[in-house]
Every structure is written in structure tokens, then in C-alpha cells.
Computed example of a mutant assay.
Amino acid sequence: MKEPCPVPVDIEKARREELRWLILRALYAARPIGTTETIIKNAIEPVMLDITLLEIRRELDYLEDRELLAVERSRAVPVWSAKINRLGVDLVEYTVPCDPGIARPEKWW
């Protein structure tokens, strides 16, 4: 008989952390120009079918606070756009350590 999991799994936390990693990967692929929240959503939907623009905006804001990317918010156009910066690129390329809060997979190569 299997032992019960000693630590309860926080599904929402795991989802947020995975979303942050997927956003960084999408913006890494969009270098050097960056892209809009809608393109990011389209890139992530195959992995997270029920993703919303609000969730993406929350995590873009979080990642901007962590200084991994820059977000452009225009009052004239209600669409956010984002561009990964040097630290975000280094994080995706595994050249810097990843602090908690982002579900970056372990380096296996």
C-alpha cells in the first residue's frame, strides 16, 4: 500500500509557477522583438487549455517585478506586450540559478 503524500500539493501554486516558466519560454522564443499577451496565450494554450489573459497579466506583472522581463502597458491600446531581458534569457538558458516561484525544470544535460 502506498504511503500518503506527506506534503499537500498546492495545485494553484504549481499552476502559477508553471505558467511563469511557460511565459519566459514564449518570450525567449520571441526574442529580440518580444510579443503581445495574446500571442503568449496562444503559445501556452496547448499546455494549459483553460488559461486566461488575466492569469497571463498577473504572471507578467510578477515576472516584471522579478526583473526578468519588461511589460509595456498602453492606455491607447488595451493589449499588453512584453520582452524578455538579459536576466530572463540567462534564466531560460540555465546560466543563472532559479529562485523559488518559477517551475524551471532541472537541467538534465
Rank of each mutant, 00 (worst) to 15 (best):
M1R: 08
M1A: 10
K2N: 05
E3D: 05
P4E: 07
C5K: 10
C5I: 08
C5V: 06
P6A: 04
P6N: 05
V7M: 06
P8I: 03
V9C: 04
V9R: 11
V9F: 04
V9L: 09
D10N: 15
I11T: 14
I11F: 09
E12L: 15
E12M: 13
E12C: 11
K13A: 14
K13H: 08
K13V: 12
K13C: 10
R15I: 12
R15L: 12
R16H: 06
E17R: 10
E18C: 07
L19V: 13
I23G: 00
I23N: 00
R25N: 06
A26M: 05
A26F: 01
L27I: 06
Y28G: 01
Y28M: 02
Y28D: 04
A29I: 05
A29H: 07
A29M: 06
A29S: 09
A30K: 07
R31G: 04
I33T: 12
T35F: 01
T35W: 00
E37L: 11
E37H: 07
E37Q: 15
E37S: 14
T38L: 11
T38I: 14
I39E: 10
I39Y: 01
I39D: 08
N42S: 12
N42Q: 13
A43H: 05
I44W: 01
V47G: 00
M48Q: 15
L49V: 13
I51C: 09
I51Y: 01
T52Q: 07
L53G: 08
E55D: 14
R57V: 12
R58K: 15
L60T: 05
L60G: 01
D61Q: 15
Y62I: 02
Y62A: 02
L63I: 07
L63G: 02
E64P: 00
E64A: 10
E64V: 01
E64M: 06
D65N: 10
D65Q: 12
D65P: 00
E67R: 13
L68S: 04
L68Q: 03
L69P: 00
A70K: 06
V71F: 01
V71E: 01
R73C: 08
S74D: 15
R75Y: 10
A76G: 15
V77M: 09
W80D: 12
S81K: 11
R86S: 11
R86V: 09
L87G: 00
L87R: 10
G88Q: 04
G88H: 01
L91Q: 02
V92Y: 00
V92W: 01
V92C: 07
V92L: 02
Y94V: 09
Y94S: 09
Y94Q: 10
V96M: 08
C98R: 06
C98S: 13
C98Q: 07
D99A: 13
D99P: 03
D99Q: 12
P100Y: 06
G101W: 01
R104L: 07
P105K: 08
E106P: 03
E106I: 10
E106G: 07
K107F: 05
K107V: 10
W108Q: 13
W109N: 08
